[in-house]
Design a protein around this nucleic acid. Structure first.
Length: 413
RNA sequence: GUGGCUAUGGUGUAAAGGCAGCACGGGAGGUUGUGAUCCUCUUAGUACGGGUUCGAAUCCCGUUAGCCACCCCA
């Protein structure tokens, strides 16, 4: 029986892995320029963490988590998202006490048990960032500007930003009540999915793609009519700052987030090239979360970018650095191998990529050198060993010369 | 979780119930110790399990996986 990767989890092989590295490096550089610092949290967390943060009735917690018991019967869960673990770490390490502001980014795998399709897998990577300790609209704007900058850095220019404000704990309940009233008596007219949604998460009905439902919700109240003055003001400021920051965006009053902890600013980065899973990044403000998880009352805002979707958008023609072999040692015989080792080490210490074959005829070794695209080959066999020299061949020119062994490192520079 | 489509060497493909072939890739050679091209040889496949049939890559059923969509979301 062949052992295969499990459904929805895939390998990233070269040369794709080079593209992944490129993306990660570009992201890190940009995070640096915004003063964000990397955090690495465990992939496994107590199940409780996600139940309390993401929400008991959310789709993620209800049916998508990889949950299991450890040997002591503790319920553990493979993280389905990145914000809750970061907030847990923030509280646990009392980061608020060291600095009122924490700006953190992460890069790593998340796990959700979903039906795989284009841009959606069970293990997927996210690049995420969280800004804790700032309630100011400037924080919201900066996160969006940072996100915008990242996409520029990735060379992806055909994405669009959509934003909304979900209100806060004083105005959101009023809106929910209004939606509830609006739907009352109409439930039967909606599609089956929406009828389920009307009980659990009525806001999602506004998100339904079916035309029938869309038509019915045409006249539904929008959150904007229910914002409290503070939320309205905050949102106004965010929009103004975005304009000043040259981030183009569209207001979409129907953006709803699937995770319970979001409030106020919510946003999505969309691209038409992605098919049904058209969001490549999303995020929002989570002001009550730190407190809900037992920490101080610290506001926060963050986003996550889906790595696989990003790769899907970048793939055509993105340039990435492949280190590439620069010097190949073609060695014949055990003595030559022994003599070459220390020289190869010296060259590696000078940052050259130096490789050899592990046997075979000179012809096959040369063929391999050519396939690897190396510039120079050092040929060292019994004849050369006797003369105390090595042959250095320039593969592009096709020329070669004899070099004294002692001068080899210097010659290859 | 639901529905549709798909599954042939490492990759891309051909074979419409009757010899599993081609290309690329991988390996070894083409005189004594030299990479491209070219030439020769070689490697490797019908996803898995059943069924129909004289005979199955081909038809049927199941499983698994992939893709697409619902759902959900990054």
């Amino acid at each position: 029986m062949k052992i295969t990767a499990i459904k929805g989890m895939s390998d990233v092989l070269p040369p794709d892995s080079f593209l992944w590295r490129e993306i990660e490096e570009r992201a890190r550089k940009i995070f640096d320029t915004y003063g964000f610092e990397e955090i690495r949290t465990p992939i496994v967390e107590p199940t409780e963490l996600f139940v309390r943060s993401v929400g008991e009735t959310s789709a993620i917690v209800e049916k998508e988590m990889y949950t299991f018991e450890d040997k002591k019967g503790l319920s553990l869960t493979l993280r389905p998202e990145g914000t809750a673990p970061v907030v847990r770490a923030y509280i646990e390490n009392a980061m608020h006490a060291k600095d009122p502001i924490a700006k953190l980014y992460y890069f790593g795998p998340m796990f959700r048990y979903e039906q795989p399709q284009k841009g959606r897998s069970r293990q997927f990577f996210q690049i995420g960032a969280e800004l804790l300790g700032a309630e100011s609209s400037l924080a919201d704007a900066e996160m969006l500007i940072l996100l915008h900058r990242l996409f520029q850095g990735f060379g992806i220019l055909d994405v669009r930003f959509e934003i909304n404000s979900l209100g806060c704990k004083t105005c959101r309940p009023k809106y929910l009540e209004a939606i509830h009233q609006f739907l009352k008596g109409k439930e039967k007219k909606f599609c089956d999915d929406c009828q389920k949604r009307s009980k659990k998460n009525p806001l999602r009905i506004l998100d339904c793609k079916k035309e029938g439902c869309r038509a019915l919700t045409e006249t539904a109240p929008t959150i904007g009519d229910y914002w409290c003055e503070a939320c309205a003001q905050h949102y106004r400021e965010v929009r103004g700052l975005l304009l000043a920051g040259h981030v183009k965006f569209k207001e979409n009053p129907r953006i709803v987030r699937g995770l319970d902890y979001y409030c106020r600013t919510a946003f999505e980065v969309l691209c038409d090239r992605l098919g049904a899973q058209n969001a490549v990044a999303a995020g929002g403000r989570f002001d009550g979360l730190v407190k809900d998880l037992g920490g101080p009352d610290v506001p926060g805002i963050g986003f996550a970018i889906g790595m696989e979707r990003l790769v899907l958008l970048m793939e055509p023609g993105t340039r990435y650095q492949v280190p590439g072999t620069s010097i190949f040692f073609a060695l014949l015989g055990n003595e030559a191998q022994q003599a070459a080792l220390s020289i190869m080490e010296e060259l590696r210490a000078k940052d050259h990529c130096v490789v050899s074959a592990y046997g075979g005829s000179l012809k096959s070794q040369m063929r391999r050198a050519d396939k690897l695209g190396v510039q120079r080959v050092v040929i060292l066999g019994e004849n050369e060993m006797q003369k105390g020299i090595a042959i250095v061949k320039d593969m592009k020119e096709g020329t070669q010369k004899e070099i004294l062994m002692g001068r080899l490192v210097e010659e290859l520079g």
